[in-house]
Design a protein around this nucleic acid. Structure first.
Length: 283
DNA sequence: CCCTGAGCCTGAAAGC
DNA sequence: TGCTTTCAGGCTCAGG
């Protein structure tokens, strides 16, 4: 369930534990983990050996390493992916998919992913609107934590769409980083129903829901930021934030914190949407 | 071009 | 008890 805050915690951990280290070897243990890398596993393994990691970067839910040769290793955690910095003698995890070893002989980086929705690709960096990003994610919009995020532009993009507002919030080409949990929380804070049409939102409503999304993610980031020092970079998303601070997500049948009405769950895009029928009305 | 919805995947939990 | 179904939800892509 990693959304932007969880991915940022991982990025910070990587910046601390693998930046400036030289990759000595890479081992792909499951082909699905590099399915986006068209030339295949042998190419992925071969081209990374000997390269130095210059930085760990992020946009939305995507992570990447800048490499010394001007390329980047792009990663996505999918639903269940974890990047673990692990001592070499620790036994392999059951769902270990990719292993990176380093020339300094120190701890290795492991990609563990039960459901194999996540994975890596090697990509050239390209300039998009003044920022260098991997070519494969040139279409991904800036996220609300980006210093150059433009709220007015995001509001315009949202209102240009002709779809349901929740679907638009999950569209990573409009605003990136928002997933199912924070979308529901943002809609609750803005008092908007998930099925409201984007083309009928007022400017103020669009500002409110995007502002709420930014706020919810900032709060989660603060709550999840406590594990930055840990060698074990866990990305289960269990930052403690989930237990305490969610107002609607996963709270079907419980009373709304704001109006007391009973939270309901509706099917939405093969998953769920949680809303308060009292303060998030369709009309 | 834009929008919608199926499909990918595994394991836990709920249903029968 | 044990088998089957549902759910979790990131993203991509075929088809309308």
């Amino acid at each position: 369930m990693p959304e932007l805050p969880e991915v940022e915690v991982v990025r910070a951990g990587l910046e601390r534990h693998v930046r400036s280290r030289v990759i000595s070897s890479v081992e792909v243990l499951h082909p699905r983990a590099i399915r986006r890398h068209v030339p295949g596993a042998a190419d992925f393994e071969g081209r990374l050996a000997g390269l130095r990691i210059e930085a760990a970067r992020r946009r939305g839910k995507y992570l990447w390493f800048d490499l010394a040769d001007g390329e980047a290793v792009l990663a996505h955690l999918g639903m269940s992916g974890q990047l673990l910095v692990q001592e070499r003698d620790v036994p392999d995890e059951k769902h270990l998919r990719v292993r990176f070893r380093f020339a300094d002989g120190g701890p290795e980086l492991r990609f563990v992913d039960q459901r194999t929705f996540g994975g890596f690709t090697l990509a050239d960096l390209v300039d998009v609107d003044g920022t260098r990003v991997p070519e494969a994610i040139a279409h991904i919009a800036r996220d609300p934590m980006d210093p150059r995020f433009d709220l007015d532009e995001a509001v315009r993009a949202l209102r240009r769409k002709r779809t349901e507002v929740k679907r638009a919030l999950l569209d990573q080409t409009l605003v990136s980083g928002i997933g199912n949990i924070y979308a529901d929380e943002a809609l609750w804070r803005a008092k908007l129903h998930w099925a409201r049409r984007t083309d009928r939102l007022t400017k103020a409503q669009a500002v409110a829901v995007l502002g709420a999304a930014t706020q919810v993610m900032s709060e989660a980031l603060v709550a999840g930021g406590t594990s930055f020092d840990a060698l074990y970079v866990n990305v289960n998303g269990q930052s403690g934030y989930f237990d305490r601070s969610l107002n609607v997500y996963g709270r079907e049948g419980q009373p709304c914190d704001r109006c007391g009405a009973t939270i309901r769950r509706d099917p939405f895009m093969n998953r769920s949407s949680f809303t308060c029928p009292g303060c998030q009305r369709l009309r």
